[in-house]
Amino acid sequence: MSAETMTLFSPRLAARFDALVEKYPVRRSALIPMLLYAQDEVGYLSDAVIAEVAERIGITELDVRNVASYYSMLRFKPAGKFNIQVCTNISCMLRGAYEVYERFQQELGIGHKGVTPDGLFSLEEVECIGACCWGPAIQVNYDFVDEIKPELVPGIVDGYRGRAHEATEASDA
């Protein structure tokens, strides 16, 4: 198929996808990991990503969109280079997650699902991330940061700002 020759993914990711579809009893089982890994590399599920994933799996683009729209981590618009996800669910809330979330909003000047004008940060209020005993907790892309206090927020933001020119995290390793 043409995907191998005209892929929009890096050679490494394309090779990974070639192997992924063979891993399961049915090709379709590769769909959700493929969408997530593609998003990690491209930044979001663009029309072109959806078209290529559909072709690789052998289903329609509509089918891919139908599945993708179900999962909260998958997005159809770009996020910031550093996507800050603040858990405000009960365990984190009890320990001050909303104060942390408000501080991030002030510091970045954006709200839920907003992206800073320079494209460096995006912010999301998210549901439980499985760090309840170490709350309030956030995830920046896939990194967990535990036991956050509002006064730690500016330092966290500065730390990531200092990494603005680093290569985007590899999709998987």
């Binding site: 049915v26 379709r28 089982s29 590769a30 769909l31 959700i32 990991p33 969408l35 997530l36 799996i57 599945v67 179900y70 999962y71 909260s72 981590m73 998958l74 549901e127 439980c128």
Partner: peptide
């Protein structure tokens, strides 16, 4: 296998659906 964000997928039959793509 990785999920992609969904509490409901912790339900056993929903998890099977998810694993089937």
């Amino acid at each position: 296998q990785t999920g992609a964000g969904a509490y409901e997928v912790g339900e056993e039959s929903a998890l099977m659906e998810s694993l089937e793509g």
